[in-house]
């Protein structure tokens, strides 16, 4: 153990340089082809959502009575719906709305649920007991009934979908966080954080929570897929966005009305979009699980 001759003005680093972490991240990605596939799908979806106005060949809300309910053609790759709207443009714009709803719902439930679960596990005792029983009650609500209640209170719309999908996911996050936090709380690094003089906030949010986030992030990625499904489901039964909106669930509902006429393209393409999105997020979530653990690098 030789002490290096430290120059008086030598600057010391506390973190490895960014290039090293980037290299490590790239190496982890290369070892994880499923995550790459998921990442590509998700990035593509996000890009489509951001650049929807540029990519979409038509204005999704432009009604064209000349081309009502046309099957896929070179002019309309995904066909047109019963109002003559271009299904491809609707699906592209739908990515925007659906990703936005899913993102809001996931972030809302993640932040609230994580904080509740973390504090509950850290405090323990009666606080923990009361919080977790409250979560039980919340979790016992049937989802769609709850959504109907919200819709009844504030009317159908994006807000209803976001609240209905997020509130009922809070218990899931709280429970997950609590289950990871309970053993972490007993770890020696938590004791060490206390023994060097950290406050409760410091120990909980600077030491324990960061170490418990991997399953939370992984779960969020998976939840993202579910949130899209759920948002689409709510719109499909008419509790979500208005039926004419460019939203995958609403679009499937529209196609469903014409089911007997054999207009398969109206519901198939938004359905495929949902499937691809859910698949992408699930693959990414599975991959992240392996990559985010610092001990596995």
């Amino acid at each position: 153990m030789s002490a290096t001759a430290a120059q008086p003005e030598a600057t010391y680093a506390l973190r490895p340089p960014f290039s090293e972490r980037w290299r490590q991240g790239m190496r982890a990605l290369r070892a994880n082809p499923t995550a790459v596939v998921g990442l590509v799908i998700v990035v593509a979806l996000v890009l489509i959502a951001i650049f929807a106005p540029v990519i979409a060949p038509y204005d999704p809300q432009k009604l064209d009575m000349e081309v009502v309910s046309q099957p896929p053609s070179s002019a309309h790759w995904f066909g047109t719906d019963q109002f003559g709207r271009d299904v491809l443009s609707l699906v592209i714009w739908g990515a925007r709305l659906d990703l936005f709803i899913a993102l809001s719902a996931v972030i809302l439930s993640m932040v609230v649920g994580t904080v509740i679960g973390a504090v509950s596990a850290y405090a323990g005792g009666m606080t923990d007991e009361i919080t977790m029983r409250t979560m039980d009650i919340l979790q016992a609500f049937p989802r769609f009934i709850f959504a109907m209640g919200i819709a009844f209170a504030i009317g159908p719309g994006i807000g209803t979908v976001v609240i209905a999908t997020s509130v009922l996911n809070i218990p899931g996050y709280a429970r997950l966080m609590r289950s990871v936090m309970l053993p972490a709380r007993k770890s020696q690094y938590a004791a060490a954080a206390t023994s060097v003089g950290g406050s409760h906030t410091n120990v909980l949010f600077r030491h324990l929570v960061p170490n418990c986030l991997v399953p939370i992030f992984v779960n969020s990625t998976l939840q993202f897929g579910w949130a899209i499904l759920e948002a689409a489901g709510l719109s499909f039964i008419g509790l979500g966005v208005e039926s004419s909106a460019a939203e995958w669930g609403a679009l499937i509902q529209l196609g469903f009305q014409d089911f007997n006429a054999g207009h398969w393209w109206i519901y198939t393409f938004p359905g495929l979009a949902i499937a691809v999105a859910v698949l992408g997020f699930n693959l990414l979530g599975d991959g992240l699980q392996d990559m985010l653990d610092p001990r596995r690098q």
């Binding site: 010391y12 680093a13 506390l14 973190r15 020696q188 690094y189 004791a191 060490a192 170490n211």
Partner: peptide
């Protein structure tokens, strides 16, 4: 305090520094 298990007593997400 110096703890018993050195690998568990250091926060895995923090550098030694």
């Amino acid at each position: 305090m110096v703890f018993q298990d050195p690998s568990d007593s250091l926060d895995p997400r923090r550098t030694a520094g």
